[in-house]
Design a protein around this nucleic acid. Sequence first.
DNA 1: TGCAAGTATAATAATATTTGCATATATCAT
DNA 2: ATGATATATGCAAATATTATTATACTTGCA
Lengths: 113, 113
Amino acid sequence: MRSMMHRVEVLKTVAHPVRIRILEELLKGVKCVSDFEDFLEISQPNVSQHLALLRRQGLIDHYMDGRLRCYFLKDPIIPDLLEILKKDYIEELPAPACCPVTKKGTYPGTRQR
Amino acid sequence: MRSMMHRVEVLKTVAHPVRIRILEELLKGVKCVSDFEDFLEISQPNVSQHLALLRRQGLIDHYMDGRLRCYFLKDPIIPDLLEILKKDYIEELPAPACCPVTKKGTYPGTRQR
DNA sequence: TGCAAGTATAATAATATTTGCATATATCAT
DNA sequence: ATGATATATGCAAATATTATTATACTTGCA
C-alpha cells in the first residue's frame, strides 16, 4: 500500500489543470512535448516543467525517439483517478440518521444547517 | 460533469495527510471536532481549519447536536477516491510498443531511459 | 445572568508552488 | 563544424498553503 506521503504527493501532482489535461491526453496514447504545445496554451518550458514534475513523481515516463521525447503513462492509479474525476455523481451521500459517536450530545433533534 | 476547476479543487482539498485521515474517519461514521483532536495530533483550531476547508469545498457537511458539531461525508466522489488511494496496484502500466503519434521520429529503435 | 465547554475565525509568519524568462543541451541535416 | 529543431533546466517574482496564536462565538447549565 502507498504510504500517506505518497498518496498526498500523487494527489498534489495531479491537482493542476494543465497536468490533468496532459494525463488525459496520455490516456489516449503516446505524445511528445510539441504535441502538448499544440493544445495547451502555455510555453514550451512550462510544458516541460509539468512533464518533469509528473516524471519525478513516477506518474509518467518517456523514451527517446530521435530528438523527440515520447511520454506515456506509468502509474496505474492514473486511469482510475481520471475516471472517477469524470464520473457523474447524481446524488449527495445520504445524511446520517443519527449521531452514533457523540459523547454528550442530545441528537436526534431537528437537524440544523 | 465537474468542471476542470472543480476537479482540481477536489484533488487539492483532499491532498493533505490530515484531511485524508479526517475523510477516512468520516467514511466509518459521524464524528465531532473533539473526536478528531483525539487521534490527530494537531491543535483544535487546526482541526477546525481543515474541516472548514472541506466544508467550503462541499466535501463534507455537519449538523449541530447541542454544542457539538457532527460532521459527515457529503460528496460521493470521496469514498471512490479513498478507495483507489488504498488500492494496491502491482504492475506499472505496460509501456507502449511503438510511438503512433510522433510526427517526425524514427522509432521503433532501442528504447532508451 | 454568568461561566465553561466545544468550536470557529482572523491575523500572521513560514514555507511551498507556479510561472516567465533566459539559457543550456542534444540530435539531426547540411 | 554549423545551424536548426526539440526539449530541459535554473532562477527570481508572484502567489498559495500551512500551522500558530490569539480571540470570538454559541450552547447548556448553575
